[in-house]
Design a binder for these strands. Structure first.
Lengths: 185, 185
DNA sequence: GTCTATATCAAGATAGAC
DNA sequence: GTCTATCTTGATATAGAC
């Protein structure tokens, strides 16, 4: 039995609240006080875990990067276990629209508004994924285009501009995954 | 003789300065005072033209949208004059990396950090361009993918994450334009 | 239309009790 | 480890002279 993650300690509660604030009120209003209010934890408590606002942003970005990495690692493991190329699985993992993607958007948004330099871990991750995604492709430029289109999906969510109906979104996703298969078989 | 545009009145100077502040110091530091300092115009002067910060953001977004619309209109005129489909020309116009794209990034960044609602004019524009770009395509899903990839290029510039060498960027651009031709001939 | 001076407030950060 | 109270600053906005 893998025990339930005891993840909902105070730290996680604070990060959850921070994301909610950004989602609900915009990156501008991501203030310590807003997080205090949204989390129900006192200012002293919040500042105990994140001694200043930069640390809070680092925490948001780090958690986002980490959970994204886990998701990709799982996708790649699945691929390898099936003896398949990893790239279509990466594409699928990147294009899923769920809470996690929202988390990505909120964290990126907060960091870029406040201190773009804090995005470095996200840049690192994107560079690595780019590399693995293009690797071994029979048409690297097309692979890069697919990766950019996947980025574009995130982009629109980030800008709060998500006009696709679920069917169109699904059609786009499946098409991108198909294309990836073609480039890696 | 078309006379030199007399565009460099105080208003434009202020908007230029605002973009420079975002580019140099991040959206967070886009303050009235920073614009005052960067533009050399006094606080009273700046607040005469933009009575509050929201008005300044509106001004940034509006100018961005307008110049983008002009650029697209020119591209479409060129296409029609040559009896060609407009979509490849739209793709070309959207993928050019220049000062204008930087302007887009700075304005978007400032608006989204501060007041996402102020992005509405940009959303409207993107919806329209999307529509025209997909219109009459022999493969609308692929057209949408191309548009998303073009978005992705902007996205990476926006996040300060622009890793492509100029040749790769050119290769991607030309490929996207080629694909667009295929879908509209 | 442009300027300086100043009022007001929101937000980050610290101190110290429990 | 969590809390309340308070200090300090940076930023918006106003007033009114030139």
């Amino acid at each position: 039995m893998t025990e339930q993650k005891p993840r909902n300690d105070t730290r996680e509660t604070i990060l959850d609240a921070a994301e909610k604030v950004v989602a609900e009120s915009g990156a501008r209003r991501l203030t310590i006080d807003a997080v205090v209010e949204r989390s129900g934890i006192s200012k002293g408590g919040v500042l105990y875990h994140f001694p200043n606002k930069s640390a809070l942003l680092d925490g948001m970005v780090f958690r986002m990067v980490q959970s994204f990495e886990e998701k990709l690692a799982m996708a790649e493991d699945t691929a390898r276990a099936a003896g398949e190329p990893v790239q279509p699985h990466i594409a699928r993992a990147m294009s899923v629209k769920n809470d996690h993607q929202k988390q990505v958007a909120q964290a990126l948004l907060a960091a870029i508004s406040e201190e773009p330099a804090r995005l470095e871990p996200a840049h690192r991750l994107l560079r690595e994924v780019d590399q693995r995604f293009i690797d071994g492709s029979s048409d690297p430029v097309m692979s890069q285009i697919i990766m950019l289109a996947l980025d574009g999906l995130h982009h629109r969510a980030l800008l709060g501009f998500d006009v696709f109906t679920p069917d169109i979104r699904d059609a786009i996703r499946e098409r991108l995954i198909d294309m990836t298969w073609t480039l890696h078989s």
